[in-house]
């Protein structure tokens, strides 16, 4: 390989724990950025049929109904913001993901650049120190903007300073997998919220609410640049799922995942570990490429989104069992892979 230097053969053996932590570091950072954007957009743009802020849609998107009702039995909509920002008992809150980010970052600290660690250190400490009153004192949108910018700074520092070895590839797998997960959840829930059962696709739609869906995925301006002839739910669903140029679309991230797995498979000894994963991603890409957005909607958007989510979850499980298998399984493998 073109490493540019004479080096020892001991390179290129990434510790399983590092791979796992890099993947989750990326997933949690991506999740945090998405949630911050969703909170901000919801407060500003997303309204229900009565014109109220549709806080509950966030609970639905994240499948957190049970946790939310356990903490807020009255279902108080105003509690959603703090539930997702500072509520420690909510494992999906930004303060909980910040904690997970911090633990993973500490674990991979020997591996990542000092700039990356320093930025994460400052960011996670700041989030973990946030109190509920900060939401009201500083306004939700400025807090969310701050969080989003810190996440984006992280992705920038990472792009600029992280060494491109296997650790980077696991980081990218985590990031793309999380984006696939986020976009399918958003499309699934918002589509059904805006088009109640029985209404035919093509009937009159609330433009403001549909553009809010785009904004929730940072897709609004990109979508405008395409200057679609009409704004229809199918157009928007098609853009979010199938547009290769939109960096958060399902199609773009499945392609990136495919490319990342191909790079990983090019390391000596990793080809066989990657083959099943590559097949799974290839299948997902084919099903997406073969259907138009209209096809997907007519055949059942919800079922398709659920199926993709299941596949993504299985993919995460397969990556784990290939690259960081449970301890007993490794000991068995060691029998025939012994090399001094």
């Amino acid at each position: 390989m073109g490493d540019g230097i004479m080096m020892n053969e001991t390179q290129g053996h990434l510790l399983s724990r590092y791979a796992e932590c890099m993947m989750w570091l990326a997933r949690y950072m991506e999740r945090t950025e998405n949630l911050a954007r969703l909170l901000e957009v919801t407060e500003t743009f997303v309204r229900d049929a009565n014109g109220q802020i549709a806080w509950h849609s966030i609970v639905q998107i994240n499948s957190d109904e049970q946790t939310f009702l356990a903490l807020h039995p009255s279902g108080d909509a105003d509690a959603v913001a703090s539930f997702y920002l500072t509520e420690q008992a909510n494992p999906a809150s930004i303060c909980a993901t910040a904690h997970a980010i911090r633990e993973n970052a500490r674990a991979v600290r020997p591996l990542v650049s000092i700039e990356m660690w320093t930025q994460l250190n400052v960011f996670t400490r700041w989030v973990l120190d946030l109190k509920e009153k900060d939401i009201y004192q500083n306004s939700l949108s400025s807090l969310c903007t701050h969080i989003k910018q810190d996440c984006q700074a992280h992705f920038g520092v990472t792009e600029g300073t992280l060494y491109r070895d296997q650790a980077w590839l696991f980081y990218k797998l985590g990031k793309t997998l999380e984006r696939c997960d986020q976009i399918t959840r958003l499309v699934d829930i918002r589509y059904h919220m805006l088009l109640p059962q029985g209404e035919a696709p093509g009937s009159e739609i609330d433009i403001t609410q549909w553009t809010a869906v785009l904004r929730s995925a940072a897709a609004y301006h990109a979508f405008r640049r395409l200057r679609p002839v009409t704004i229809t739910p199918a157009n928007i669903v098609g853009f979010l799922l199938k547009n290769e140029g939109f960096s958060r679309s399902l199609a773009a991230n499945l392609r990136l995942m495919d490319e990342t797995l191909a790079l990983l498979a090019s390391y000596p000894g990793l080809r066989s570990r990657c083959s099943q994963l590559q097949e799974c991603v290839a299948e997902l890409r084919v099903t997406l490429a073969e259907q138009t957005a209209e096809d997907i909607i007519i055949r059942g958007l919800h079922d398709y989104m659920s199926w993709i989510q299941q596949q993504l979850s299985q993919l995460q499980g397969q990556i784990a069992s290939e690259f960081w298998p449970p301890v007993s399984a490794v000991a068995v493998q060691a029998d025939f892979q012994m090399q001094a």
Binding site: R17, G269, A334, Q337
Partner: peptide, 23 residues
């Protein structure tokens, strides 16, 4: 690598670390 105890194991009195490419 910085390893923790759980990243290492001993087999036939030899020490191995768990990597993405096996022991």
């Amino acid at each position: 690598p910085l390893v923790e105890g759980k990243d290492l194991f001993v087999e036939n009195h030899r020490v191995f670390m768990r990597t993405v490419n096996g022991p």
